[in-house]
Design a protein around this nucleic acid. Structure first.
Lengths: 222, 222
DNA sequence: TATATATTTTAAGCATACTTAAAATATTGC
DNA sequence: GCAATATTTTAAGTATGCTTAAAATATATA
């Protein structure tokens, strides 16, 4: 399977699972950085290979086979990110681009070896769940900081970005996964969020707060 | 740089450095598993990019730029092989094919991280030297078992193959890097070599003995 | 040295994965 | 409901990296 096909399928999966997004030709084109014409072309070809469902002028969806492919790729991506961060000590801002390339050249056999070496991690260094070999994902109860309730205490569980700038900002402000976050105030009109981290107050705009995810401080098995 | 270009350059490098081989169109084609026509085509294109020297009907050679590219790839390949074997515990017969894919998706930055993690190894698990970041190779004084002198004692230093079968054979017969090998007799007419390993006598044909390299048991710095 | 054989190159064609421009269709606003 | 606008699809064209078949050239042999 070519890199282009794999990235296409992964893009559809991500858009299908992102609230507020759709899987229309233009959206997929934008997310892949290619033209709408190329997207239509690829959708038609992949429909013949039973990877996507395609009907003219309609949103594209993944078949079960396409979904399996996407989850396998996401698994490889997140395993590589975990490996690069924990073993080779690359920073959060460095791991994405390397994993983006390696994921396409990773056999299932090798993915299992990496997973096993890492102790079959459930979450990657960004807090994203790592699918297991069957495509199952750990449950994620996190909520976005932009939706969090003022006055409550949370734990930072996920940094949802693939941009180096975002990770540079978060690490410089000690916004690390696992740290305690108190939400002071939500400025609904200006879309700003004030939080307290390490006894320091930080005011964040929504570009940032949308990408930070939190879990409430209690056990979900209770 | 595309995978095809990288593999072409690597192939020329390997043929240039393999005694008894040449870098004519047909030889490169055979080593890459493509047609002679495709080889000519690629040679012409890469000459324009200053990676190879090409004149009609003449053997192809690498430019300094081409040589640097080849050594960078070989470095990445051998670092991955070392990593896969030592860290993820893949067998000697499994590492080549995985490294063959990963090498093309590895930045210089990542290669340096892997090298550093492994303690900047001078040799990979097959006994092949790992070029350093500047393309320098450790000196290799090994000789082929097919050329070794009867009655002498050697240490097995290199298993020169990329075929899984060969490594299955060698590991099953305890022909491991670092083990002591005594050469009993060279049967020059039939191209057979008799050796003693772990108090066991083994008779090897030249297909095998050519791929096994040995060092004499003394220090080259003396 | 001439000719037969082998090798290399050129030429034409194909698949993949894109592009831009035009045509077709869908959506929005009045 | 219809026109204006936006989106999607089709069509034509490009670069890469191959293929096979033919022509050109080189090499080997008698």
């Amino acid at each position: 399977m070519s890199v282009s096909v794999e990235n296409f399928v992964k893009s559809v999966f991500k858009l299908e699972n992102t609230p507020g997004s759709d899987t229309r030709t233009g959206s997929i084109a934008a997310s892949l950085g290619i033209s709408s014409a190329a997207t239509t072309d690829m959708a038609q070809k992949l429909a013949l290979r039973d990877l996507v469902n395609y009907k003219k002028y309609q949103p594209i969806s993944l078949t079960p086979k396409g979904r399996r492919m996407a989850l396998s790729l996401i698994r490889k991506h997140r395993l590589w990110e975990t490996f690069l961060h924990k073993v080779l000590e690359l920073s959060l801002s460095e791991i994405h681009q390397e994993a983006e390339l390696l994921e396409h050249q990773t056999s299932e056999f090798l993915a299992d070896k990496i997973s096993n070496f890492l102790g079959n991690p459930e979450f990657d260094p960004h807090g994203d769940p790592v699918p297991d070999a069957f495509g199952n994902l750990a449950m994620d109860y996190s909520i976005s900081l932009s939706e969090a309730l003022p006055g409550k205490n949370y734990t930072l569980s996920r940094l949802d970005s693939s941009e180096a700038d975002f990770f540079d900002f978060s690490s410089q402000n000690a916004l690390n996964i696992g740290c305690a976050v108190s939400v002071i105030k939500q400025y609904r009109n200006s879309n700003m969020t004030e939080i307290m981290v390490n006894n320091k107050s930080i005011l964040l705009n929504s570009d940032i707060s949308k990408k930070i995810y939190l879990t409430t401080n209690h056990n979900h098995d209770e």
